[in-house]
Structures are given as structure tokens and as C-alpha cells.
């Protein structure tokens, strides 16, 4: 999972506190493995240093200061770039692919476009592997098969996700609304 892009995507809807971001990241992208607060703040710091987010406001309340961040124009560009560019197709892309789809929905983008570009990238890689298998010795060929099956599985999952994108969209919208 790319926490950077997850954070950028969540900030796209509006400025948020680090605390909120942690909970939203947990909720949408890593329900089984919550991220540490430190990781969120480190990510925000890195993004701020690259100019992709900016400090929006500091609220003083009980306890520590609460710093609110907002996405910058640079941050938006980075997010779009990342969404548009297919991932390097390797097995076990589940986390990254999932992040992409959710963010695409949150940002109101066409999910089929992502699926198509991912498919294209996957097939290109699968073509390489198929060619490799044809020429390589059997053990390498078997490894190539392993990679091919996993890539295919990712693609199929992606296609299924695309087919169920409306369900997903309704579900995500509901959960952002009940968690301002």
C-alpha cells in the first residue's frame, strides 16, 4: 500500500487532521493492519517537505496541538499521475491495486479506465513472461508460470472489482458521510 497516495487521496476531499487521517486510512485501506500514528505523521512530514501538502491550520484544544493539513496543487498532480500510471505488474499487487480503486472512486474517476490500463500493463508483462517461458529452461519456465497465474488472478480480481464498482461506490460514500 502506498500511504502517501492514500493520504493525498483522503486530503483531496478537504483538509484533515493527522488523527482523522489515521482513522480513515485504517478504515478504508488497512482494516486488518492499522497503521501507526507515527507513520501518518512521518508521511505528512515527507509530503509537506515535497510541497504536496501544506499546513492549513493549527487548532489548540485540550491535549496536544492539532495540525490540519490540506492538499496542494502539486499534491493533486502527483495523485492524478499515480492513478493514471499502471503499477509495475508483479504478483501480490493487491494492496496497491485496492488503494487505487478506492481512491479512484473517492475522487469520482472512471474505474474502468484504471482496469483497462492495468490490464494492458499486466498483459504486456504476461507476454514477456510467456515469451520467457518459451525460451527459458524448465525451472525458470515454472517460475514464469507462477508469476503468470498470479498476474492473471490479480487481473481477474480487478475485473470483478470493476464489475462491482457501483456497490463499492455506494458503500464508500456511505462510510465517509457517517464519519465527517
Amino acid at each position: 500500500m502506498s500511504i502517501q497516495h492514500a493520504v493525498l487521496g483522503l486530503l483531496q476531499e478537504g483538509p484533515r487532521h493527522g488523527y482523522d487521517l489515521k482513522h480513515l486510512v485504517d478504515r478504508y485501506f488497512a482494516p486488518d493492519r492499522p497503521v501507526a500514528f507515527a507513520q501518518i505523521y512521518a508521511t505528512l512530514a515527507r509530503l509537506e517537505s515535497r510541497g504536496r501538502v501544506a499546513l492549513d491550520a493549527v487548532e489548540r484544544a485540550e491535549g496536544p496541538d492539532r495540525r490540519r493539513y490540506a492538499i496542494t496543487e502539486d499534491g493533486r498532480h502527483e495523485l492524478v499521475r499515480w492513478l493514471d500510471e499502471p503499477l509495475a505488474p508483479e504478483p501480490h499487487l493487491q494492496a496497491a491495486l485496492f488503494t487505487k480503486v478506492v481512491l479512484a472512486i473517492l475522487s469520482g474517476r472512471d474505474v474502468t479506465a484504471i482496469v483497462d490500463s492495468e490490464r494492458h500493463a499486466h498483459l504486456a508483462r504476461m507476454r514477456e513472461l510467456t515469451a520467457l517461458r518459451r525460451s527459458a529452461p524448465v525451472p525458470i519456465g515454472l517460475l514464469a508460470d507462477y508469476a503468470l497465474f498470479h498476474l492473471e488472478a490479480d487481473l481477474r480480481w480487478l475485473e470483478l472489482t470493476a464489475a462491482r464498482v457501483d456497490d463499492l461506490r455506494t458503500n464508500l460514500k456511505l462510510s465517509t458521510e457517517d464519519h465527517p
Binding site: H120, M126, T130, E152
Partner: peptide, 15 residues
């Protein structure tokens, strides 16, 4: 099947 499609030079997607 993507593995079958991988034998092709390119793919056309119909939806």
C-alpha cells in the same frame, strides 16, 4: 483468460 490473451500481440477489450 489473460494467460491465453498473453499469447496475443495485443488485446481488444469489448464492453
Amino acid at each position: 483468460e489473460a494467460r491465453v490473451a498473453a499469447y496475443a500481440h495485443r488485446e481488444i477489450v469489448v464492453r
